[in-house]
Amino acid sequence: MAVKALQEGYHGEFKDSAEKFGGAIVVYIGWDKHLWFCSPKAFPLDPNMPFGAVVENVLPAGFGAHPQFAEIDWDKVEWSLNQQPFTPDMEKSLAEQGFDHKCLLRMKTPGLDGLHGASI
């Protein structure tokens, strides 16, 4: 369907198109079964940064407050990118591995399923 408007061809401005973020892409990151963080978080990231830098800098800033964060075995994390299974290369850049503007990265940490049987 399309909007019904007074004039033919009405279209609102794309408020969040990629060029508005000064070279960054917005990446959403969620950690399954860890609702201590109420929702996934949004990060403006340089698409040329290696994935390893996300693990080293971005994730600790966003999710490091959780007691299970320090226990994560990064070799066992199950990742998905835009809801497709994804095996990251720590050395390669985000752009090289298919990260685009407003993409969704989810991580599952088998064995670390939140606290108190309540997915906290």
């Binding site: 929702s39 978080k41 800033a61 407050a65 606290l115 906290i120």
Partner: peptide
């Protein structure tokens, strides 16, 4: 089942002077 443990955990941290605030911004 789902929410009491979360709030009790938060209350314990606050009691210890470590009131939890989430870093960064939500999607």
């Amino acid at each position: 089942k789902w929410y009491r443990p979360r709030f009790e955990m938060a209350a314990e941290l606050a009691e210890k002077g470590e009131r939890f605030y989430s870093e960064g911004l939500p999607q």
